[in-house]
Design a protein around this nucleic acid. Structure first.
Lengths: 158, 158
DNA sequence: CACAAATTACTTGTGCACAATCTAATTGGT
DNA sequence: ACCAATTAGATTGTGCACAAGTAATTTGTG
């Protein structure tokens, strides 16, 4: 029972989360490589495929990333010819990110990715029970992230 | 029902995981700062507090980090006076990482951390049900990471 | 209108992650 | 004993993350 030390690595949610997240990103890497994408760039495209011509700020809100991360990342996507960066004509501060035809076309190639990944994760796409488990885990993580962000935002004032 | 696109950001386990992991790391940062630690350095100390004088390789196995990440990180920990790096006398290739008295002493200051974090995550340390949920989530993530690593390790051969 | 405050993105600097490569030490087979 | 293969760790280079600070633009207020 000396094992129940809260400072034990295996007791910690943080490490389980950190480790699983990196493991999943590593799984994505070789599948994204043929598309010329890294995992964060893939996330940006997911956002833009849902809604095009977003401001840097809006992409950042969606992914919880600041401009310090996004600016260079978006420049690389632009250099790859997948997006275009255009200053807003109405508000000169805003840079809107537009998908190019190539960027839009890449979506077709990305379609099979979620299923390939599901396979790697060991979730069975044909099993309703397995899919419910996956959804449950996803929702639990989303809720956790929301609680953490809310708490962090409040704390400094309190 | 057009919402059920698998490429929808909110449908993806990967983003939920990636986002929650970064949110938790961000939560740790201000709590670790008074101890002079970053989150990855804290993880290394967790490992060493369990078992001292490990080789770089062993720490790497525990945290799923390679020497490219660990070597500079351990040098910084050494510069902070928290660990010492000693070449093995039997096998000159091995570098064993030893905690200094300062490094060992830091453990006392870290004791309250898991509880402060638990508070931020919204889990109630006094509720048995809440604690069971946390353990369940942790175990699910650990199992997921294991499945991903195993799958990735096999794939190239298959 | 003037002008302080807020907003948007960019820049700079640090510290991970990780692939790829390298060097040195050790091991195993012959 | 010899040498190819293996192993441990360090190095190099790229790409995130994120804090902190800057510059340009817009908004709000007297």
């Amino acid at each position: 029972m000396a094992q129940r030390d809260p400072l034990q690595l295996d007791e910690q949610l943080c490490f389980a989360l950190y480790n699983a997240s990196r493991a999943l990103t590593r799984t994505y890497a070789p599948l994204l490589e043929p598309l010329g994408l890294t995992y964060p760039r893939y996330l940006v495209l997911l956002v833009l495929w849902e809604r095009d011509a977003l401001a840097v700020r809006q992409i950042g809100e969606r992914l919880a990333l600041d401009s310090g991360t996004l600016t260079p990342l978006l420049k690389r996507l632009a250099q790859q010819g997948l997006v275009e960066r255009r200053r807003g004509s109405d508000d000169e501060r805003i840079v809107r990110i537009h998908l190019t035809p190539d960027g839009r076309a890449l979506r077709a190639k990305a379609r099979k990715l979620p299923f390939e990944i599901a396979c790697h994760t060991g979730y069975d796409v044909t099993s309703e029970r397995s899919m419910r488990e996956l959804v449950r885990l996803r929702e639990e993580l989303t809720a956790l992230a929301r609680r953490l962000s809310a708490h962090d935002a409040d704390e400094p004032a309190a």
